[in-house]
Design a protein around this nucleic acid. Sequence first.
RNA 1: GGUCCCGUAGUUCAACGGAUAGAAUAGACGUUUCCUAAACGUUAGAUAUGGGUUCGAUUCCCGUCGGGACCA
Length: 594
Amino acid sequence: MDIQEDLSKTIQRAIAELYQQDMGEVTLQPTKKEFEGIYTFVTFPLTKALRQAPAQIGQSIGGWLVDNSNLVSSFNVVQGFLNLSIADTAWLGLLGEMVSQPDYGAGTKRGQSVMVEFSSPNTNKPLHLGHLRNIFLGDSVSRILDFGGYDVTKTCIVNDRGVHICKSMLAYRMFGNGETPQLSGLKGDHLIGKYYVLFDKAYKAQVAEMIVEGSTQEAAEKTAPLMREVQQMLRLWEQGDPDTVALWQKLNNWVYAGFDTTYNSIGVGFDKTYYESNTYLLGKEVVEEGLDKGVFYRKDDNSVWIDLTGEGLDQKLVLRADGTSVYITQDLGTTDMKAADFRTDRQIWVVGNEQDYHFKVLFAILRRLGRPYASELYHLSYGMVDLPTGKMKSREGTVVDADDLIAETVAAAATSADEAAKGKLDAFSDTEKAELFHLLGMGALKYYLLKVDPQKRMQFNPAESVDLHGNTGPYIQYVHARIRSILRKADETNLPVGGPVVTVALDDVEQQLIFGLGQFPQRVSEAAQDLAPSYIAQYAYDLARTFNQFYDKLSILKEEDPNKLQTRLVLANAVAETIKRAMGLLGIDVPEQM
RNA sequence: GGUCCCGUAGUUCAACGGAUAGAAUAGACGUUUCCUAAACGUUAGAUAUGGGUUCGAUUCCCGUCGGGACCA
């Protein structure tokens, strides 16, 4: 039973009977808290068709509902707003139904397969804060779609080849002295990142020197010996030179080991990892196909282009005059490949908004080529993460490293949680404590990055991100722990934890809580529709907050009426389960105790 | 030059075209012999700007001003 849907249909019937008109789907909104009622029906839109004042329509429909439906217990009308209260029996019926569904909130299986691509790092440096927003978004969207009934494949395309990694390779060859992650104790990705920075320093010094000797900036940057060596290394790699390839493999493997450590610590994984070294030559046959179909055209210099001015875009190069690929050429090939590999109906890319234009072009080209999946491609674009001090800039060394950030967040969570616990954790072993603090730190971090609309550029305030109070992950985690604690106590004293819902009179706040639980399936489906983890974050917070109000106002274990006690236990349990599930969709675990 | 995104309390974020624009945090005040006060309550505080569309605009449209990104 879905109260909202039933109510909406009942109102349609009321209009049909009272006015002999069919107004189609009617929408309801939650009643503002200053007014009595839980659902509100707005009558303004009906005034023209029904030729009646808004308030009068409200009175008529409200009266009809109370007389003819056992769903509505009372109503009031404020201007054009018809506020409806729902009968306790309906709430209890809803609660009973919810707790009987083991996968409450899950969407029905659609047999549609979706591929979500995210993270997609370069292999020349470690992950940073921006990647974390990307990864948490991609992971959460995957979980939401999966829960919403899609078959999800999580993919990552590792950018493991090119100039960037050659820079690290060259610097390692020059300055490495056989350093390894084992010898230095550095994580592999950090080790390679170090050499990338070393290259940059040496290269800049060289350029500066050349400028002193009379070269222009541009010429110096192009012709510096170090840059030439990098270019040479890339050529050797492309030719398959054994030494170069061996070095490349060794360094990349260190990086992968480093990334895996990070992924493990944040609880994220992929179903399929692609390597650009295997895919970077793809796409050339797509160019041929496009030329055959007349979608692309060749210029006199032999370069190949597409004219997208009709779509409000530009003319776009798809193959250089010398026959080499550009970025988009590859993407054409890999998109085809991904669609074929997993018979994917739909592809989603989680990529920063600086690539908005690139994806518009990519999708436009695939549409022109007549790809059957072309209408199901989506760029989940997100804004940059700024620091309170301004933009993160790698050149200025203000980039926040992901591993450092995770470690600091967990450490900060440990300090404040230990303090806030006031002895509640005394029975915990050191390992248990460490696990809890990690869970809280990750909860804080993930929630902080996911509660914001992806499209918006956001500010990351380290102090705020580990806060345990207010609209935060730990606030919600706390509610779960609180409920679990009550349920454990109830269990110990043989109270009916798993009992059925019994008929009782409900308090307002109990109705609010059931109302909140009832919203879950809809919110999940909206989040899946809009690919919006922030909806789920907001939902979990609202539910947790309502529970705290309930907790403050009414007692569970000390309730004397056994029927009320039993219903409250069912209710509390349902809230804990739903919080756990909602947080799970954000990739956040919840503790049994904290 | 062209295209795209974003402007909401001091700050960080919400708001299918709906009521007196919600939260959090920072500030002021209050609540615990009672299930976890990591909580709850009270209070003060905001739609960048000028038009338009309509019963009604933070939301949609046009312009201006700010912030950011991309394309050649």
